[in-house]
Design a protein around this nucleic acid. Structure first.
Lengths: 258, 258
DNA sequence: TATAAACCTTTACGCAGCGTCAATGTCAAC
DNA sequence: GTTGACATTGACGCTGCGTAAAGGTTTATA
């Protein structure tokens, strides 16, 4: 009924180092220490180790386990419920990761020859990548993960031709915007044309367009300095100008046509 | 076009410490170091950081990322596929954890009075726990997760009376087996009785019995030293004897009745 | 121009949960 | 008495940085 470290470790399927560590952190102390300094464990310790290992199996941290097993009145179920929430969150994140990895693999697998096609895929991926790295969190917070993922999927599913059109459209938006900015009138013809092109550009990412969302994005271009920096590259104020144009375009400006 | 640590960090949404760390481990070295010893990053480094952060988002280890981004000919897709496998394994484990935690919570919630009932639930849980801790991986590999989970669920759903019967049956198996072992004849009446009892015992865990599975388990008792140790406690060779008896019982012995 | 504020640098400990030496002591067996 | 299997404490290592500490540089302001 008395066990040395190695015997107990063998029984429990753990290492003696683990037992010493548990002793060190005060999670499981031996019943006594014999004259030679050996750790001697008894029945109670075996039982307790069972408990510890059980919670450990559940992924509970050793500190929490200590709270559970040392305090008999400790709310073990509450701790477990909390732990469950953590695990669920973890799983969600993991699912996202897996989806992203698979998306990346799928994108990369689609290449046949390693030249243009690869570069093209690389570009698409890079675009997504950059978006994710730069704006990922904020956009996901604002528009939800599903939206963003759908958007990325749609992008990845594009053909080279579609992608070329997307790029051209992006340039058109910038060019038209530049011209329009010179006029100074967000309600003018050029500005509205820019807003329209911007709408088309967005539709490459969105599955269904809504003027509210469009206006929201335009506002974000002003609110988020990184977007602002992008649109203001050539002329400071361009982002705000685009927002104003879009607000009018979508009929959501509060000064005139409601 | 040139950035100090803090500027680059700000752009990328990471800390300057992270950049210094990446420099330290050779993952991302600055383009140059100015006369004051400041790290100066250029366009290439920005691009590379984008890549690095992209893979980091996917949960790839920094070491693997280094292999990917430093070696242009490195099999990034292969690495990703490997990574995906790891993630999937992780998710499986996580699912298991969650299931177990939920099971535990459910079991604990069912308790009204903290005495016998609790102890009883504890015993059941302990049984599952021990099984999982000792044989979990191997059994899950051999029989699949669903099987095991179903088995555990069935166990958790048992009433106290059923549980008592299960325990008694387990003892009966061991006792009968001991007597039978003394006869030395696995085809004998006692041995076949033990095999039958063992079948009944198994049916406490399985939803549908098959002789093939029964024979498989018996074989496992011999193959897996931990099971062997359990059955051979009193008499070495008992596990093998039980297997022979079961093979005959299930009609799967290759010497006589096919 | 002096000084403060805001940068930058290197060095190094800390985190979780042990694995893995290293150096040394103890016990049972031959 | 020696070997070998056990035990002990102590300390470093792993990942990916966070977080001081102790100091030098650049920039802004009084």
């Amino acid at each position: 009924m008395e066990y040395t470290v190695q015997k107990l470790a063998g029984m429990a399927g753990i290492s003696s180092r683990t037992l010493r560590y548990y002793d060190e952190i005060g999670l499981l102390k031996p019943a006594r220490i014999n004259s030679s300094g050996y750790r001697i464990y008894g029945r109670q310790e075996v039982d307790r180790l069972q408990q510890i290992l059980f919670y450990r199996e559940l992924g509970v941290s050793l500190e929490t386990i200590r709270d559970i097993v040392t305090g008999p009145s400790f709310d073990a179920v509450g701790a477990l419920r909390e732990h469950r929430e953590k695990l669920l969150t973890k799983r969600e994140q993991l699912d996202l990761l897996i989806a992203n990895v698979e998306k990346t693999i799928a994108a990369a697998e689609g290449r046949i020859n390693m030249s243009d096609k690869e570069k093209f895929e690389g570009f698409k991926q890079k675009l997504i990548d950059e978006n994710e790295a730069k704006y990922g969190k904020e956009i996901r917070e604002k528009y939800g993960d599903e939206q963003v993922d759908r958007s990325n999927r749609k992008l990845m599913g594009m053909t080279e031709e579609q992608y070329a059109r997307l790029e051209k459209l992006g340039e058109d938006v910038l060019n038209t915007l530049e011209e329009a900015f010179a006029t100074g009138d967000p309600a003018g013809e050029l500005a509205q044309k820019a807003a329209g092109l911007h709408r088309q550009w967005l539709c490459f990412f969105w599955e269904n367009y809504s003027s509210e969302a469009h206006a929201g994005v335009a506002q974000m271009y002003v609110d988020d300095e990184r977007f602002t920096a992008y649109y203001d590259r050539k002329q400071p104020g361009t982002a705000a100008f685009l927002r104003d144009a879009v607000l009018i375009y979508t009929g959501m400006a509060d000064n005139d046509n409601a």
